[in-house]
Each structure stands twice: as structure tokens, then as C-alpha cells.
Design a protein around this nucleic acid. Structure first.
Lengths: 274, 274
DNA sequence: TAGATTGTTAATCGATTAACAATC
DNA sequence: TAGATTGTTAATCGATTAACAATC
């Protein structure tokens, strides 16, 4: 299944250069990106990690997916904790939990939990706690996980393969549509039921499957091209594992996971706990 | 090389139960962890992601490694950005950079960069900028990356293997000592020059190599055991990829990378950019 | 000197914490 | 009613931003 299409044998030199987003850095004295790069994708470079910035200031996206409207905005810090509450609630399956329990299980304070949940409109009962199922469903809806979201992975190397093999994504709201690569040896193979295809096929697949999120697991040199490919195909959310900062159009959200960065942060606290 | 030692064929039932840190959650109405779990590793559960908490409030660690003493404390948010500045500086290799350039390349504001760097004691020259090499060395020293830090990986599955194969860790300050597993089929193999050993060997290796950081890439069910094993062997910094919150003794720092959590956060911002 | 860019200050913003009234 | 636990408020803390004097 999914036999390769026009396997151009370059390392990762995609032909998608109608956006000539250079991965080189800003001209030396440009006081602002916006001024320096007039055409092409405005370089809304978003970041992640500690102080997130994991999103971009932007006009509303083309079509707002199935999300309860008219909600109070949820603080970024809260959004980042909701998935962890969700993870706990999915273990519990049913019954009632207190903020104290959720806190204990997720490593935050009970006050924090109550505060966070209050942004959802809150579903607790004083003296009793929160109903597990109701709360779980509410968080899932808030996160936009009502139905399974289609995800593509660009880069079918070690890491991409590891992700594709990871069980449990389905249960947590995601579905891998395909992996993409340029290596003819990889194209046409199937990993954990997920086809590996040539990157040329990505735009069509993204359209057809309405892919919401792209994961980049290419080598660093190819990551910007992968991002260009994804964004020009219409993907507005990117999880990037390559150790480079991406330039993406406004309205596209990028989160970064850089293993060496994580280790370096740990290295710092190794010497100064607290 | 590294032939397996007493390969007990259980899935991941390590014998390290002298800390009987249950991975089950806190007793229902314990108002504080500290009160609820009197003996064993006090469950300083630390978190990561957005609002980090990627460290623990704790008395000084046994022996402070080679770090410049008497420094002003660096804010958490700044610590999390320093590795990204470092990544950029390593590309540049030499010359001079302005805060504006660093900002452009890393996706933060120039004011932020200057503020962050001022915590290091600052090395800039007004009207000129920062000297690349000096700044890079300063950040590396601050992060405690003077010499290569030894790291172990617990769990030689897809993800552990992918990390072991990842080139570039050496250049960024780390050295993988070994991977550990309980699967006899894996033990004794070598991945990218790194031996896969039975977990029984971990404590001795940690002592011998003075391992600073442990990475957990086991299945969720085994992660708490892996953490217990690491902490009782003396490891005080853990990077956990398993989708569970770990209980660790005070003084141990844990950072979490949960792929589904990252995707879920992206799912939220997909609908509400900005 | 004129232009550039740092380092720092003060103002603002957002997140966390503690406390407690509301209420089951 | 008594005990438990939420939801919310107010106080505190920490991070970001903007502006600009210092100075190369």
C-alpha cells in the first residue's frame, strides 16, 4: 500500500520553493521581522518550553473547528495543565474526584486545580468534588478533541518511527494519517499500520484528510522545508522535534520539543535545586 | 559487549522495592503529600511544560558540581531560554551578535534577550553587541555543561533507541553511557555505539560513571519503577517521556515530555490562535 | 561626533497562592 | 447539623515589555 510517488533521490530538497522562506536568520539590523520580510510567510516564530509562547497573535483561523463558542479565554498556563488533568481523569474512568486528588496525581496544588477548572465554567459540587466523566468530557471538548484529530509526521527516521509505533495516541484524541519521507527505501513501507509516503503526496493528503497537526521529525537541515510544506498545505499547528527555530506564517502555532534543550535545563537545576 | 546480567524475564518488575514508592495516587484526603507519606522518598512531584515547576524546593544537593558560585539566581523562565540562545550561538561560532539578532533567531524579543543575558553578569558591549564565543562559554558554564555530562536511558524500545541514535548530543554537552532494559532480546546489543544492559547493572554504572541525568523511555507501567531505580542509585535529574506523573524524593528534578500532551495543547490553540 | 546597542529601570501583565464564604 | 470541598476573591509573586540613559 501507499507505493512511492516520484521518489526524487535528494536528501530532503523538496521542490516547494514558491515560499522561499529562508531558514537563514534575519538580516543583521532589521529592527523587526515584519519590516524585513515583506512577502512570503510572515515569520511568526513561536516558541515553547517554559515560557510558552506556544501560539501566535493572529486573526481567526479559516474555519473554527467544533469548539464550544462564547467561552471565557483560558490562560495559557491553564491550557498547558488541562491535558495532564485529562490524563488522570482517563485513568479514573468514573466516580468523583476532589481537587486535592487531582492535584496529588498531577503535581500541582489543589488551589491551582480549582482555579484552572473554574475557567471551564466548572462542574464541581461543593462538599463532594468533580464528576470524573463530566469533567473529562468537558476538558476534551475545550481542547477540541471531540473527534479524533488527523496528524501527519514528516520524517520517517528513528524518531518518526518511534512516534508512529507509540500506542495510546488514538485513545488520547489523535490519529496518524501517514508518515512522509524522501528516502526511497522507506517510502512504501508501513509502520504500525501507518503508511510511509513520499513528501510529494503530503499536500493532497492534508487536504483530503483535513489534517490538523503536523509533526516534524526530520533532520535539522530539512525542518524548515518541512514546515513550509506543511503550512502551505494548510496545516496550522506544528510540533517540531528538530533543533531549529522555524519561520512560519502568522496564524500558525509551533511547539518545540528539543531533547538537548530539556537536558540542558536539567543540567542547570542539577546544581541548584529549588 | 555488555552481555546481560541475570536477565529476569518479567516485563519490568525490578527488584528495587526498598523504596516502596507506590505509583498509585495519594490517599483520598491527605491535605499534603508530605504528611501522607512519612517514610520513603518524599514525593516532590515536579512538572514541566508551560508553567514549568521543572525543579524542586530542596536543600542543596550532596556535592555541587563545577559551577561558578556566588551568582545571582537566574529566573526559571530565563533558564529555559538560555539553551535556545546557546543553540544559536553554536551555529554562529564566532564574531559578534546583537540582542536583536539573537531575538530574531530564537523567537523572543530583543528586550527579553538583553534582560536574560543581564542575569549572567552580561558580557555585551554597548554599541557593538555580544561576543559569540564568550557568551557561548558563559552560558555553557552557567548551565553546568563545562564537561560532557553522562546520561543513561532506561527503556531501549523505539523511543530510547531513537534517542540513542540521535547525533549531536555530544556537541551539546551530553554523553550516553548506556541504555537499560529487561528484555533479553535487547540486552547485549549495541545502538550507535551505546551498550544495552540489564537494568540490574544500572546502580553500579551510575556510581562508576557519576551519571548526572536519567532519561525514562519505558512503557507507562514501568516508569515509576525506573524512577525509583534511578533515584535510589543517586540520579537527581530525570527526563520522563512516559505519560505518568512520577513520585520522586525531594531534591530530584523531573521534566516531562508527553507527546500527547503537546498535541493536545496544539489542539486547543488550533481553534483560538493568539 | 553620530550611530548603535547595551544594561537597567519602572510599568504592566499574567500566574500562583492563601484564605474563606458559599453550599453540598 | 457537621463535615467536606468548591468557587472566588485579594494579595503576592514572577515575567514581560517599553523606554531610555549609559556608553562603546
Amino acid at each position: 500500500m501507499a507505493r512511492g510517488v516520484s521518489p526524487s533521490p535528494q536528501v530532503f530538497s523538496l521542490g516547494y520553493s514558491f515560499f522561499s522562506t529562508r531558514s537563514t536568520l534575519a538580516p543583521r539590523r532589521a529592527s523587526q521581522y515584519e519590516a524585513a520580510v515583506p512577502a512570503g510567510p510572515p515569520p511568526t516564530t513561536t516558541t515553547s518550553g517554559w515560557v510558552d509562547t506556544g501560539e501566535s497573535t493572529v486573526p481567526a483561523p479559516p474555519a473554527g473547528p467544533s469548539i464550544v463558542p462564547g467561552m471565557r479565554p483560558i490562560p495559557r498556563a491553564t491550557v498547558a495543565r488541562l491535558p495532564r488533568y485529562l490524563r488522570f481523569l482517563e485513568q479514573r474512568k468514573e466516580g468523583t474526584v476532589s481537587s486535592e486528588e487531582i492535584a496529588a496525581a498531577t503535581g500541582v496544588t489543589a488551589a491551582q486545580v480549582r482555579k484552572d477548572l473554574s475557567f471551564l465554567g466548572s462542574l464541581g459540587t461543593r462538599g463532594v468534588g468533580y464528576q470524573v466523566e463530566g469533567l473529562r468530557d468537558l476538558i476534551m471538548r475545550q481542547l477540541g478533541l471531540a473527534e479524533s484529530l488527523p496528524v501527519v509526521i514528516v520524517g520517517a527516521g528513528n524518531l518518526g518511527t518511534a512516534l508512529a509505533n507509540y500506542r495510546g495516541f488514538a485513545q488520547r484524541g489523535f490519529r496518524f494519517v501517514a508518515l512522509y519521507d524522501v528516502d526511497p527505501a522507506r517510502i512504501g513501507t508501513v509502520i504500525n499500520g501507518i503508511p510511509v509516503r513520499h513528501v510529494d503526496r503530503l499536500p493532497a493528503d492534508v487536504q483530503a484528510e483535513e489534517v490538523a497537526i503536523g509533526v516534524i521529525t526530520t533532520p535539522a537541515e530539512a525542518a524548515q522545508q518541512a514546515a513550509d510544506l506543511l503550512t502551505s498545505a494548510g496545516v496550522r499547528s506544528i510540533l517540531n522535534f528538530a533543533p531549529v527555530t522555524l519561520r512560519v506564517p502568522r496564524g500558525v502555532t509551533v511547539r518545540y520539543v528539543d531533547l538537548a534543550v530539556e537536558l540542558q535545563i536539567l543540567a542547570y537545576y542539577r546544581t541548584r535545586p529549588g
